[in-house]
Simulated assay, not measured.
Amino acid sequence: MDLQLDQLRALNAVLTEGTFDAAARRLDLTPSAVSQRIKALEEAAGRVLVQRSKPVRPTESGLAVLRLARQVELLAGDTARELGDAGRRGDRPIRIPIAVNADSLESWVMPALASVPAGITFDLHREDEEHTTRLLRDGTVTAAITATATPVQGCTVTPLGAMRYRPTATPQFARTWFPDGPTPAAYAHAPVVHFDRKDDLQFRQLRRRTRRQVDPPGHYVPSSSAFADAVRLGLGWGMLPDLQTGTDRAAGTLVDIDGDFHIDVPLYWQQWKLHSPALGAVATAIAAAAASALTKS
C-alpha cells in the first residue's frame, strides 16, 4: 500500500472532527478536497475506511489505518518542531488525544498538562478509569490514565499511584441515616449518590458492608464536581476522593461514615510505543504531578 501523508491527515481530521466540513476547516481545505483524499486513501487501502454517517465513523479497517494516521501525524509534528518549522503556516500544534477518568481530570491532571511546553494541544476524552483502555485499542487516543495494569498491545505502562476514596456524607446525613454507625441495615436504606452506571465504588462498599445484594434509593450525577456537590448538599452518601474532600473534612462539613475505611484505585499511564518527544513531555508532566498528588500504591 502507498499511503500518502496528506491522505492520512485527512482521515485523522475527518474521524476526529466528525464531519467533512469540520475536517476541511481544520486542514484549510474544501470539503471536496478532503473527500477526494479519503477516496484516494480507500483506493490505496483497497477497502472502505469510513462510514459516511453523522458523525463520520471508522470501519474496522478504518480503525487500523487511523492508528497509523495518528502515529504518523504525531511523529511528523515532532520532526517539524525539531526542525524549527512548527510555527510555519500549515503546521498546526501537535494534538495529543488522551483518555482521562473524571476524578483525575477534576483534581490533578489539568495542572500537569499546563506544565507541558507550548506547541502541544490536547484532545481529552473523559471515560471511567476501568474503560479508558478501549479508547487506546481502537486508536481514539494515544495515551490514557487507566486502572488497568496490563498493557494494551503496542503500549507501555507506567504506575502512577492510587486515588483514595472514602464513604462520605454530611454530618446531618450521617446522624439521620447512620445513627448507630455503618451497619448493614443503614447501608441497605440510606440514599446513595452514584457518578454514573459504570461507577462501581458505591456498590463495592455496599457489598462489603451488607454481604448481600441491596438496592437503596440512589441518584446518578455524571459530573465529578456535581457528584461531590450532591454529597455536600446531603442528597446521599458517596465514595469521594481525598483529593476533592480534604478541605471539607477539615472544616467538618463532610465526614467519613465508615471510620478509616477507604478504597484505593490504582492508576497507570498507558501510551503508544512511539519515540515521540511531545508524547514524552506529556508523560513526564503526568508522572511528576501524580507523584505529588496520588497515594503511593
Rank of each mutant, 00 (worst) to 15 (best):
R92L: 14
P93C: 05
V152F: 04
A118P: 10
P93K: 07
A76N: 07
L136W: 07
A149T: 05
L135T: 04
I96G: 03
D138A: 02
D103Y: 13
P111V: 02
D78A: 11
E82R: 14
I98W: 03
G139V: 03
A112T: 03
L136M: 13
G77K: 04
A76M: 06
V48G: 09
T146E: 02
C155S: 13
S104H: 08
R134I: 12
P111T: 04
V109G: 08
S107I: 08
S107C: 08
T121D: 14
G87E: 14
M110D: 07
R89V: 12
I120C: 05
D78W: 10
V50P: 00
L136C: 11
M110N: 10
R52Y: 13
I120Q: 07
V48M: 09
L68Q: 14
P58A: 12
S107Q: 12
R134A: 14
V109R: 08
T140L: 05
G84Q: 03
R47A: 15
N101F: 08
F122I: 01
T140I: 03
R67P: 01
P111R: 04
A86T: 00
E82W: 10
R137P: 00
R126L: 13
P58Y: 07
T148N: 12
A149H: 11
T140S: 14
I94V: 15
R88C: 02
R92H: 08
R137N: 09
L105Y: 14
L63R: 15
D138S: 12
P58Q: 06
F122P: 00
R81N: 01
T150Y: 00
R70Y: 06
L83I: 03
N101H: 13
D85A: 13
R57H: 04
L83T: 03
A64Q: 13
A80S: 10
V56F: 08
V152A: 13
A144I: 09
A147E: 13
R70L: 06
T79E: 15
A118E: 15
C155P: 00
C155L: 05
T148H: 06
G154Y: 09
R126M: 05
I98R: 06
Q71M: 05
L74Q: 05
V65D: 02
D128N: 15
T79C: 00
D78S: 10
T140Q: 11
L105V: 01
A86C: 00
A86H: 09
A118N: 09
L66T: 07
R47D: 14
I120K: 06
P97Y: 04
T133C: 09
D78H: 09
E60V: 12
G139C: 07
R89F: 08
A102R: 11
I96R: 03
R89K: 10
A143G: 15
F122H: 03
H131E: 14
E73N: 13
A144D: 11
S53W: 00
F122V: 01
L135G: 06
S107A: 12
E129M: 02
R67F: 03
R57C: 00
E106I: 00
V50Y: 01
K54V: 13
T59G: 06
T59Q: 11
G90W: 12
S115M: 06
V100E: 02
R70Q: 15
P58E: 06
V109S: 05
P111C: 06
I96Q: 04
R126V: 12
S107F: 04
P151R: 06
D138Q: 09
Q51G: 04
A86F: 03
V50L: 10
E130H: 13
T121L: 09
R134P: 00
E73S: 15
V109T: 15
D78C: 08
